[in-house]
Design a protein around this nucleic acid. Sequence first.
DNA 1: CAATATACTGTATATAATTACAGTAAGTGT
DNA 2: ACACTTACTGTAATTATATACAGTATATTG
Lengths: 205, 205
Amino acid sequence: MSQRMKNLTKRQEEILNLIKTHISDFGFPPTRADIAKTLGFKSPNAAEQHLRAIEKKGFIKILSGASRGIVLSESENNEIPVIGLVAAGGPILAQENIEKTIPKSRNLFSDDIDYYLRVKGDSMVDVGIYEEDLIGVSKSKDFKVGNVVVARINDEVTVKTLIEMSQTKVVLRPENQNYKDIIVNPETDELAIEGSCVALVRESI
Amino acid sequence: MSQRMKNLTKRQEEILNLIKTHISDFGFPPTRADIAKTLGFKSPNAAEQHLRAIEKKGFIKILSGASRGIVLSESENNEIPVIGLVAAGGPILAQENIEKTIPKSRNLFSDDIDYYLRVKGDSMVDVGIYEEDLIGVSKSKDFKVGNVVVARINDEVTVKTLIEMSQTKVVLRPENQNYKDIIVNPETDELAIEGSCVALVRESI
DNA sequence: CAATATACTGTATATAATTACAGTAAGTGT
DNA sequence: ACACTTACTGTAATTATATACAGTATATTG
């Protein structure tokens, strides 16, 4: 969420969702009257004023004079970032790491993807993950032993298979015979599992 | 294109494209007046009548009474088929091979993808193409030696790397040491290069 | 405590937009 | 030849829609 995007109230969020749902159901935005009817307002002006408030907060643009002229803003909310090189030290999703963004509406996958990470290096070739591939990462999905995960070890971000995970020992395996397992003690090393890899996209073969 | 979908005239196609462009530009369909203005009609009724004709042919649905109430039909035109197992003998895109479809609007790739093909077998693992992966195939893109292509050899569809191609000899290489090159003489064997692989999608890791 | 934001009702109006009706003209199919 | 389709102009009515103005009431904030 960018800085100039103030938070919506509960009601405003409800209306924004209604707009999105209407677009997805019909292919075009609702009228003020549509909104009023759906939410039980007795005046279309109630919808009008909510729209103004939502526009003021930057989530939509109202095209004056045009019927159904509600344009959703391209907020980060609707866009999945593609993370290129991760600068050491900062958070993965820092602005400087974002190579481009892909509209959420283009998501092909059933899982929710929080970001795509561009793969660097050949440490995962044995499971078919190649340099320059994009990995779809889910932050929320609970990861298990055996999953391919995005891990951060002492400020370095890496994609590996999670082999073992206990209080004192975490084993991350590169899927490439030329590399050795990474064994980390979470009590002495800084370790964070940032997310689980749920999908892969290769833009050129 | 389904049977009940009659062909559009040139002008009608122009108008359908205009509608699609307007939706992609603004997020909602044009009005009759918008169409008339863009195409230089002096009466919105010209647009109205074209819309009626296009609706009659099944490409759109007009919602009566609603402003901008033009709904694009989910024709195969807007959907990319995902091909599962290809039945021997028939065309790749035969209805019975289609596992599901993905809206074109969700295409992540710069190349035009005519269909996705679900990979069977492990003959391409050395270039990171695994069983169950989806390969984005472009029919139009001209394929060169070195490309991964979809080939049909005597009614069998296969994904391989194109190594050599001449009047009398075509070499297709499985990217897996356990398999041998496939050498075909196009003059004696039935061979067709169906398309070029331009993208890859893995729905689960 | 005054200003501002939220969340509406209620009325009204200008304008945006659909849509019917009446034509003209050229081309297509049977 | 006659019906039908395509491709428009021109006018106009009806309805759909945005949007202004005047209120009421509650909550938040500096």
